[in-house]
């Protein structure tokens, strides 16, 4: 591989091919943005011009902001993702540490439960959970959106694997210094868990920001709708065939994560790759 002559793909061909394919891949984004800037009559003419003839208009975006509680959706997305991540870390980091480094009766049994939990897709408990929340009168609340995801067996598993790789001396030294288990978790384990926590945070936020299934079940109406649900309701109720506004709404809802990704590309890719490979 080190020898250029051994390379089967002449460089230019490789670049050209990848560039073409990449462009095809970006088509939905390109047309989404293009349509969001076009007036409706131009969209309906189905011209293949990417650039709006009239020089573009932000009227679609204005319409979206007038008719749709965009900021509410985005805010709900932030609250739900942050709430879920907070509890996931709060529960999983200590549990992961205990399963990795402490000896206590029943530990292997607990770890067995974690492995078992990994096998179950989150769609399976959804029905009884829905019944439970509706029985408690908690539909259309943040509680209903957040609670089912606060326990992530995947996070426990991930942190346990990560802590297993940390040297025992680190913890022994802390014990000798007189720390109790809780302050070991807080002062020694947590700072060391940062790489794993970042990777998991990216994984978790991407998953829950994008999730449609659960919000669709427990939320009706705009007040507690997440971005995914927001786009769906806007599409079916208000916009209909108003593709300009629909594309504008899509751009707005997609933008936060995509921008975050563009800024922290390496972290995202590594985060998804490590969590993906462990999962």
């Amino acid at each position: 591989m080190a020898e250029p002559r051994a390379n089967p793909w002449p460089c230019a061909l490789r670049l050209a091919f990848l560039a073409l394919l990449g462009l095809l891949f970006l088509m939905p984004y390109i047309w989404m943005i293009s349509a969001s800037l076009k007036p409706l009559d131009e969209i309906f003419r189905a011209s293949l011009n990417l650039l709006p003839e009239t020089g573009g208009t932000l009227r679609n975006y204005a319409r979206v902001f007038e008719n749709v509680p965009v900021l509410t959706y985005l805010w709900n997305g932030v609250v739900v993702c942050a709430g879920i991540l907070f509890f996931q870390l709060l529960f999983a980091v200590p549990a992961g540490y205990a399963l990795a480094k402490l000896h206590f009766p029943g530990r292997d049994w607990l770890f067995g439960l974690v492995m078992l939990g990994l096998l179950v897709p989150y769609h399976v408990p959804a029905l009884p959970l829905y019944v439970g929340f509706s029985w408690l009168g908690l539909l259309n609340t943040y509680t209903a959106l957040i609670t089912p995801s606060i326990i992530s067996v995947f996070a426990i598993f991930l942190f346990r694997q990560f802590f297993k790789a940390l040297p025992d001396e680190l913890i022994h030294a802390a014990r000798i210094d007189g720390m109790n288990e809780l302050s070991i978790v807080w002062r020694v384990i947590l700072p060391n868990a940062l790489p794993a926590a970042t990777a998991f945070a990216i994984f978790s936020v991407v998953a829950h920001w994008n999730d449609l299934f659960w919000p669709l079940i427990v939320v009706t109406g705009a007040e507690r709708a997440t971005p995914a649900l927001g786009v769906l309701t806007f599409r079916s109720e208000e916009a209909g065939d108003d593709f300009g506004a629909l594309m504008a709404a899509s751009v707005i809802m997609t933008a936060p994560l995509v921008l975050a990704f563009l800024f922290a590309q390496r972290r995202f890719v590594e985060g998804i790759a490590t969590t993906g490979l462990k999962g």
Partner: peptide
Amino acid sequence: EGWAGWMLCLPAVLSYLLLLLLPTLAA
């Protein structure tokens, strides 16, 4: 250590039982 282990796992264990195991069995 045994006590600490269970205490650290407790929130996870409770939510696991309540939000994952029980609903799955119920399903």
